[in-house]
Design a protein around this nucleic acid. Structure first.
Lengths: 242, 242
DNA sequence: GCGGTTTATTTGTCTATACATAATAGCGCA
DNA sequence: TGCGCTATTATGTATAGACAAATAAACCGC
């Protein structure tokens, strides 16, 4: 077993103190020059270890004051939002897409609200994802043609719109909401469920924010509805920075 | 406006190239010595910028080969898992807890499966969270008394078990799953819903992993069921490392 | 005691250099 | 041609020192 780099070891030692509960939130961590003496190394090395812990949120650093154990980690989980086709194929099942509706139109009031635009053209899609010929998810999507004009020329009856967008359009921010709903008549018919059956509904807004230079632009809005019994989102959280 | 540090500026410049689409995935980023010449600075400064981009997943670095724009960002979102009491109170509503059942027992087969233990004692709780006297969530919880013996002495009819645990037990890992279910008779009665009403079900396993030194220990398992219409999980993702 | 000024401490950034490590590319030899 | 060795190159880690910036603490005049 090969020795890990020194700055990793220093970071791990401090992390162990915190995780074991020996150093509680607010506890002052030895100053850089003390750790420097303790590990007999340069300040840059100690600094690297502490900076990493600071960016991972485990400690907080203040000039002149020192470094302190941060407040207990918030309950933030890394949630994997699936690429539906990839997910289905990863389970060894056959994927099929059925494009139910496609309309290119001037944005309606509802479209404008979803994409947060004042005016413009949108591409509205409605499609059904199948896994081994069983309905897997109903997808309703709006694409802002003002930002992604080339989407108008794509044949979405073959490629899932989500996969196409991910591969072709850079984006920086996404907002999700997850809720449980009872299937309405429409949804129930599409997914071959009984009316009122529990479904997981995932909504996502994706946009591109170039920074202060330009206003953020909404790229797409999507609402995916999964039968509740067939779909589970999972998330993992580690208190360690990694 | 004060000038940002040089390593931040270098990182931002590279990020801008990637985000604008000018440098596509796989594109080779100028080597450290080239950036060094371009910005007229030391290699450490360039290295700091590139390391940060690498840990945030935007670029990939390989010895001898160089640094490359990484594959498009994965769809990972930071999901906020709520502290129920804090959430309710933050909305200005009154919180109340009703402890429906409490039993301290030797772990049953189901308990052992949920906590991944071979044997031992557990504390099983079942409680109902109220917001302004309306049922908000049904919680079923198991606490591993082998790891948290002091939980046996806590009065959970006043303090929500989740809040108590968060404040008293260090943990490192949590795994969540989210699903939509139709309320069974039991759940429907507790939450005052109709049978079959759509509910969001959140399950969470929390454990402590001290590293290679010891086997990970499961601390608690919890299953929270929320009326679908009253509860929405939200998540935000930024492609930037921050 | 109170408010403002100075001082000392600690972190933040950066330089310049050195050696280690990984991995590719090319060369020589069978 | 194909295999193995070597040289090259880019990154990874670390040193030692310097100055800048923030700010808590001490000080001082009133």
């Amino acid at each position: 077993m090969r020795a890990p780099p020194l700055h990793v070891r220093i970071g791990a030692d401090i992390e162990a103190q915190i995780m074991s509960g020996a150093w509680k939130p607010g506890h002052r961590i030895p100053a850089e020059h003390e750790l420097m003496a303790q590990y007999d190394c340069a300040r840059m090395t100690v600094s690297k270890a502490l900076s990493r812990l600071a960016t991972s949120g485990l400690i907080e650093r203040r000039r002149r004051a020192g470094s302190f154990v941060a407040a207990p980690p918030l309950h933030h989980a890394a949630l994997s939002i699936p690429d539906i086709r990839a997910d289905i194929e990863a389970h060894g099942r056959g994927y099929r897409l059925d494009l139910l509706a496609r309309s290119e139109r001037t944005a309606s009031a509802a479209d404008r609200a979803a994409l947060q635009i004042k005016a413009g053209k949108v591409l509205a899609l409605r499609c059904l994802h199948f896994a081994d010929d069983a309905p897997y998810a109903l997808e309703e999507r709006l694409i802002n043609l003002g930002v992604v004009p080339e989407a108008a020329a794509v044949d979405f009856s073959a490629e899932p719109p989500g996969s196409w967008l991910l591969g072709h359009v850079p984006w920086t921010e996404a907002e999700h909401s997850i809720a449980a709903i009872g299937a309405d008549a429409d949804t129930a018919a599409a997914l071959k469920l009984e009316r009122g059956a529990a479904c997981l509904r995932l909504e996502r807004w994706t946009w591109y924010d170039a920074g202060a230079a330009a206003a953020p632009e909404r790229i797409t809005w999507v609402r995916q509805t999964f039968p509740g019994n067939a779909f589970i989102l999972s998330a993992h959280f580690s208190a360690r920075g990694a």
